[in-house]
């Protein structure tokens, strides 16, 4: 059943991505309802999978890298479903679908049986872990918005904009969306750290420093943008690079946790 839920989610995201590619190829730049519904169905299927895992383990379903990636892609999809339409960020779904799909496929390819023992049923530990991943979900979507910013800025600088230019949101709105998502991620990550402290969670030195590095990286981005030290482009590059770095570090942190 769990496998079916996962496959269903993958198919939904694949549909969303495929439909977007097809629409772009045909010169249509409004993925519209189909894309949104496919993303929503994907998130629902992932939610179904996660709830089954949670019920089976009596704990937050983030016991191995595969589950973490699924939880992360679920968070990204969920945040997109909330903020995408609210901010009228048309085409954001088109940029979000490939990222979510990639995370989902990697999760499917990873062995899912090995579970780490550190998530013993403790609400604070689980809050810490779940909030961290949702925070990364917000950072992931900030990365998507960053990519969209860079594409749109490139179009504006080229002075010969391609048809996609007319369908991408204004760079100021993308910049604002990036800032808000980084703020959301930063607050959630800070709360997750607080929950970790309350739980007196013991983590390895490597994990601690990696986590702190990510926290300071995003804090620096926020201060830089608040002080007007970062232009929109620099903000977009910084948030995209920070998330990619976090993604690369995620398996390392996970490995360190396993050995802690």
């Amino acid at each position: 059943m769990e496998r079916i839920a996962l496959l269903l989610a993958t198919i939904c995201y694949l549909f969303s991505f495929g439909h977007t590619l097809f629409a772009l190829g045909a010169g249509r730049f409004q993925p519209g309802r189909f894309n949104f519904i496919a993303m929503a169905m994907g998130a629902l299927s992932q939610g179904w999978y996660l709830s089954m895992r949670g019920a089976a383990e009596h704990a937050c379903p983030i016991g191995n890298l595969a589950e973490i990636l699924i939880f992360l892609s679920w968070s990204i999809a969920l945040i997109y479903l909330v903020i995408g339409p609210a901010y009228r960020l048309s085409l954001m779904g088109a940029f979000t679908a490939p990222m979510v799909l990639l995370l989902q496929i990697v999760a499917l390819l990873l062995p899912g049986e090995i579970r780490h023992g550190f998530f013993r049923p403790n609400p604070w530990v689980e809050t810490h872990a779940a909030l961290s991943i949702v925070a990364y979900g917000a950072y992931g979507l900030a990365c998507v918005a960053g990519f969209m910013f860079m594409v749109q800025e490139g179009q504006l600088k080229s002075r010969r904009p391609a048809p996609i230019f007319h369908h991408l949101p204004p760079i100021s709105i993308l910049s604002e969306a990036i800032k808000r998502l980084v703020w959301i991620g930063f607050l959630l990550l800070s709360l997750s750290f607080a929950a970790g402290f309350i739980a007196r969670l013991m983590v390895s030195g490597g994990k601690f420093w990696f986590s702190l590095l990510i926290w300071f990286l995003y804090a620096g981005i926020l201060v830089g943008s608040k002080q007007g030290l970062l232009s929109g482009r620099q903000l977009a590059i910084a948030t995209s690079a920070a998330f990619l770095l976090a993604l690369i570090l995620l398996p390392v942190i996970e490995k360190l946790s396993a050995h802690a």
């Binding site: 504006l156 048809p163 007319h166 949101p169 760079i171 100021s172």
Partner: peptide
């Protein structure tokens, strides 16, 4: 897309500033 200089300017400004 826009089809006059004025409307091009408006569209570009919109794509920069919202």
């Amino acid at each position: 897309g826009p089809t006059s200089i004025g409307s091009v300017a408006v569209e570009l400004a919109g794509k920069i500033f919202g």
